[in-house]
Design a protein around this nucleic acid. Structure first.
Length: 691
RNA sequence: GGGCCGGUAGCUCAGUUGGUUAGAGCAGGGGACUCAUAAUCCCUUGGUCGCGGGUUCGAGUCCUGCCCGGCCUACCA
């Protein structure tokens, strides 16, 4: 097979949080594919980088009392240490906050301008006269223009769901200064994607670019209508690159993030005296992106359009994977299943996770479930009992006898496994890792059968049989060696250990075609330990405790060393930052809202509604109200009956799809499962007003 | 409400362009062995292929309706 030139990327992790087991699905999947391709002898460059721009990074840095550069510097170090811990080996790991990236963004921007793909439109935007800056939606609060709910963000109302422009807010307030914003016009820049439709459509239709479900998704959701312009600019304050000649205007993070793929390749090229054009403007170079299904939109519509505009090659294939679930459920802080990579590494070897993911991954976007007991079982059964057992049961004899000078008769077993190398390689190539693992385990079964039948332990007892023993060991160890070679993309640690034992680096796929002969065998010590369910449970339990502590806003006693600069033992500012204080109001304003103690007399699910419970609350006497509350994800109906809550009793009734809602139940929290009902101290009775 | 994907043995999944009695691994049951990390090997129980129609000589595989799950999107909070 001719040598291919392949550029591979994983999605850039956002420099605002640690790597967790969900991220690692992608990096492990990509790393396996890359290692496989390298073992084939192809020229492969695997790049990744931290995605460092955007409002969230700015806020985090501010919260930590650091500059953005300091903050993203810390995160980058953590990320790289975690990736290294999982044996994920990038050829270059960069940052979108690099000079190379800025220059490439400028070049690409210039090309887009030349081709008349950028539309400048003045957008009416709120301006903070105190801070002297335009306000992004998230820095404005005000009353919803539709339902009048206070404290709503600049893009949509979380009370009635109405979407609007920030300029539509009633009584808007800047959350930066508290000032009343002025309406000013600001220039915004839009990428006119529709003009690139032919290129994008052709690319999507080309067999190989995408998995069919991705192509279907794009056709169903976007290609049916005119492709909308994409707002590529953001006004200050924004952590990112300022647009040339447009002071105060920055590129939206999703513009410069994928350019980071190219910028990081450029850094690699400079480091290795290579030509960037050979990798990004060479039709013979394959470009493979590995991403999660959440960012398909950016990588399959805008990105090809931008690449085409800038004169770069379009991706050969975008490999989309699904999300990680743990024990069948979404990862959750409450369940302790939001496990950081570092936490995993504190407890368990990376090889186990790499292998487990491999057994679960195919070329599809299905979600992948990390089932803890299955994880333990697969690792023990497949890796320890089958694969490592082979070397474990043969190496002692092998150390005594060495390997025979010619390969003994083995009923065609070595030949069979050598031939299977093709099918296994095809599975790796296609991203069908689970299939590859199945095929390899079949070889391990066959090899164990051989040992069983050859009975080396009996031969070892008879000095007359020394040659037969050596031959048997030669077969067993060579069958093992083939398996290790095939597993090497997944288990580089085993590849290394076994290579040392054999005195031969097992870095080339084709080594599996030829037996190793006449070699002495090193001393074997266990390559892998069996895994206990308790070890995994302990990791989850620790995570749960830490998360619970974090959720309670106390600094956990077991605070993790990798967690950057934990605050003092006080509540964090996260909640306030997420939802800044509303405009000052008077006591007269407050008394307009009649808050009452109420008892929940019945609670039932609204089957058709995703978030709602239907509550009937009593205000005492025969006064009851029907209230719909968006707390389905956080509370079981049966747990609510009888409890006292605080309701807004004089809220104008609202006709909802499922019935009339005659009030509102007070709760704190960010929504979803993070909802915390207010309840009065004991002694309060239904009907009492809250003053 | 619309879209995409999935629903095959207790669990995780294979089932190639429709073709004979539907497969694997693990788990379960029985036996053998003792070199090996209570590992290995042999035998074995177990499935109305989500449900109903249809096309066909023949359907897990194609068409259609419905049910269930995941995700996306809209709406509703």
């Amino acid at each position: 097979m001719p040598t291919r030139q392949i550029l591979v990327t994983s999605a850039l992790p956002y420099a605002n949080g640690p790597i967790h087991l969900g991220h690692l699905v992608e990096y492990i999947q990509t790393d396996i594919w890359v290692r496989f391709q390298k073992m084939q002898g192809h020229r492969v460059v695997y790049v990744c980088a931290d995605d460092t721009h955007g409002t969230a990074i700015m806020l985090s840095a501010r919260h930590k009392g650091l500059s953005e550069e300091q903050w993203i510097g810390q995160m980058s170090q953590q990320h790289q240490a975690d990736f290294a811990g999982f044996d994920i080996r990038f050829d270059r790991y960069g940052s979108t906050h690099s000079e190379e990236n800025r220059q490439l963004c400028e070049q690409i921007w210039a090309r887009a301008l030349e081709q008349d793909l950028i539309a400048a439109r003045d957008v009416q935007q709120l301006f903070d006269p105190v801070e002297n800056t335009f306000l992004a939606d998230r820095f404005v609060k005000g009353q919803c223009p539709k339902c009048g709910a206070p404290d709503q963000a600049g893009d949509n109302c979380d009370k009635c769901g109405h979407t609007y422009a920030a300029t539509d807010l009633v009584n808007p307030v800047s959350t930066l200064s508290g000032a009343t914003p002025e309406l000013r016009s600001a220039p915004h820049f839009f990428f006119q994607l529709e003009k690139c439709r032919p290129v994008v459509e052709a690319w999507i239709d080309r067999p190989g670019s995408l998995q069919s479900e991705t192509a279907n998704y794009l056709k169903g959701h976007f290609l049916g209508d005119a492709l909308r312009d994409w707002d590529l600019s953001r006004s200050a304050p924004y952590f990112g690159f300022e647009i040339p000649n447009q002071p105060g205007q920055y590129w939206y993070v999703w513009f410069d993030a994928p350019v980071g793929y190219i910028a990081t390749t450029l850094q690699w090229c400079r480091e290795h005296q290579q030509d960037l054009a050979d990798w990004w403007q060479n039709p013979a170079t394959e470009i493979h992106h590995f991403i999660g299904k959440d960012i398909v939109y950016f990588h399959t519509l805008f990105w090809p359009a931008i690449l085409h505009t800038a004169g770069y090659q379009l991706p050969t294939r975008v490999h989309v994977h699904g999300f990680l679930t743990v024990n069948g459920r979404k990862m959750s802080k409450r369940d302790g299943t939001f496990i950081r990579g570092r936490k995993y590494l504190d407890h368990l070897p990376p090889a186990y996770l790499r292998y487990y993911y491999a057994t679960k991954l195919g070329d599809n976007q299905d979600d992948l479930d990390l089932n803890v007991s299955e994880f333990v079982e697969k690792v023990n059964t497949d890796l320890v009992n089958k694969v490592v057992n082979l070397v474990s049961r043969s190496a002692k004899f092998g150390g005594q006898t060495g390997l025979s000078a010619t390969y003994p008769a083995d009923d065609g077993r070595f030949e069979y496994a050598a031939a299977q190398g093709q099918a296994i390689a095809a599975a790796y190539e296609a991203g069908e890792l689970s299939k590859a693992m199945r095929l390899i385990m079949e070889l391990a079964d066959r090899a164990n059968q051989y040992v069983e039948q050859a009975q080396p332990w009996k031969l070892a007892k008879d000095p007359q049989q020394a040659t037969a023993l050596r031959d048997t060991v030669t077969v067993a160890l060579n069958l093992y060696r083939q398996i290790v070679i095939y597993l090497a993309p997944v288990l580089p640690s085993l590849q290394q250990q076994s290579g040392d034992l054999f005195g031969q680096a097992l870095t080339d796929w084709n080594l599996a075609q030829t037996p190793l002969l006449g070699q002495t065998i090193g001393t074997y010590t266990h390559f892998m330990q069996r895994l206990n369910l308790q070890d995994v449970e302990k990791m989850i339990e620790e995570t749960k405790l830490e998360n619970a502590a974090a959720l309670a806003n106390a600094t956990p006693a077991t605070a993790d060393a990798t967690e950057a600069a934990p605050a003092a033992a006080t509540d964090t500012a996260d909640a306030l930052l997420a939802e800044p204080l509303a405009e000052e109001c008077t006591i007269d304003d407050f008394v307009k809202v009649d808050l009452r103690v109420a008892r929940i007399v019945s609670a039932e699910e609204v089957p058709e509604a995703r978030k709602l419970l239907k509550l009937v609350v009593s205000l005492g006497g025969d006064q009851t109200r029907q209230v719909f509350a968006g707390i389905k994800a956080a509370y079981n109906p049966e747990d609510l009956v009888g409890r006292l809550v605080i309701i807004v009793a004089n809220l104008k009734p609202r006709q909802m799809k499922f019935g009339l809602s005659e009030g509102m139940v007070c709760a704190a929290g960010g929504g979803g499962t993070e909802v915390f009902l207010l309840s009065p101290d004991s002694g309060a009775v239904p009907g009492q007003r809250v003053h």
